[in-house]
Structure formats: structure tokens, C-alpha cells
Design a protein around this nucleic acid. Structure first.
Lengths: 109, 109
DNA sequence: CCGATCTATAAGTATATGCTTATGGGTTGT
DNA sequence: ACAACCCATAAGCATATACTTATAGATCGG
């Protein structure tokens, strides 16, 4: 609609799909080749590759080719746009309700 | 795909659309009736109402009828699922890279 | 070298999504 | 009461999206 950075868009959109979130979350347990990721879910390997491509384009994961496998792992910095987006309204939250302050304590106790 | 709470899904999906993020962000400036929100963007009033309905269903905004207007405002607690989702992996972030710690300092300085 | 394995990409399809115009219900001012 | 206003909802449409199967390129084991 207007002033939204492309990367921010990509991150939000990548995480909007439950399958991609599940894949992303599963990579939290550690890097894994595509075949292993595929085995964890009930969708086809191409579907997984397509999701990974989108996560990668959003900067949320990276893939490293080793032999005939491609190992994917999470890129924590990829979440920065998401965190920045929330942080952008910190002043508002605290001024109006102070609710976020409590929530943030859960994050950084 | 699997174990994703419905509300979490709704929040992520609601924020995935740039128009809805823009509307949500504009409500950060304060409550506003639908007509005012509509005036801020270049989409029709029904489109705005549909976006607001989805944001409301996700718990991100609430609407209050006053006269013939409906004033919408942000519901900060609505972002909790988003923050919880990030926080859920805090241990992972800090254990592996410690990157998120720095990011969090931006949030709660 | 050859068959098997691993992954990405192409092509096709069904559904979801975001928008539009049309309309109806509710509220206000005259 | 009536016209104007505000909003939500219905219906329709064009595009986006998430999946499938088919396939080709790359790599490994025997």
C-alpha cells in the first residue's frame, strides 16, 4: 500500500504461512538437509524446496550445499525486520498501556 | 501444517498484508473512525472495513460504535502471540549466536 | 561408468486473497 | 419523516498462492 520496506514485506509474508513457520521452527533444532525436512512433514519435496526458497529470499534461512545434500539453517538476524517493526512502536505502547514493557521482560529477563 | 495456534495464525496472516499493516500502523497515531482511515489510503471503504474485520478477528484492533461512526483503535496485547513466537526461541538464539540479545537491547534499552 | 540419490525448477491446478461495485441497516440533522 | 451520512456485508472478479507431478542437473556408491 505504501511505505513498507521490501525485506519487511518478505519476512512477514514468509512467516504468514503455517507450513513455512513449521519448517523454520523445525530448523531451530539444528541444520538439516532438505530430505530430512521433507520427512518431518506431509508435503512433497518440491513443496518444501519452494518454502525454503521463500524463507531464504526473506533472509530467514541459508542453505549450504554439501555433496548432494543442501543443509539449511536458521539465520537469526533474519528476524531483525520483525523485531524492528515491533520496536518502532515501543514509545506508543509504553505511553498508552505499558503492556509491551511486561511482554519484553519475558524476552529479556 | 501442524501445531500452530489459531490465534497465532491469524496474527501472522493479518500482518502479512501491507495494506493491513499500514492501517494498523496508522491507528498507532490514535483511534479513528472508518471514514478517516479510508481517507488515508487509496482503497475503497469496503476494502478498509474488510481489513479492519480481519485485524479485529486477529485481536489486533477493536472497534467501538459511537453514533454512526465506528472508532477503531489498536489493541497492544494483540501483538503478544507475535512476541511469544519470537520469545519461544530465545534460548536457541542466545545459545547459538547471541544475536537476538543485541536486538532485544534495542527494544528494551 | 551407471544407477541411485538429492535437490531445484517447470508446468499445471485448485483454492485463497484482495479488491471492486452494489446494497441494506443504523444513525443523525432538518 | 426524509434525506444524508456511516459502515458492514454480499457478490463477483482477477491475481496470488500453495500444492501437485514431471523432469533435469549434480553428486555419490559400487
Amino acid at each position: 500500500m505504501q511505505t513498507t520496506s521490501p525485506i519487511e514485506n518478505k519476512v512477514f509474508q514468509a512467516l504468514a504461512d503455517p507450513s513455512r513457520r513449521a519448517i523454520f521452527e523445525s530448523l531451530t533444532r539444528g541444520e538439516a538437509p532438505v530430505r530430512d525436512i521433507t520427512a518431518r512433514f506431509s508435503i512433497s519435496q518440491p513443496a518444501v524446496s519452494q518454502h525454503l526458497a521463500q524463507l531464504k529470499d526473506a533472509g530467514l534461512v541459508i542453505g549450504q550445499k554439501r555433496g548432494r545434500s543442501v543443509y539449511y539453517r536458521v539465520r537469526p538476524e533474519g528476524l531483525k525486520p520483525l523485531i524492528d517493526w515491533i520496536a518502532h512502536y515501543r514509545a506508543f505502547w509504553t505511553d498508552h498501556l505499558g503492556q509491551l514493557e511486561n511482554l519484553l521482560k519475558e524476552l529479556d529477563p
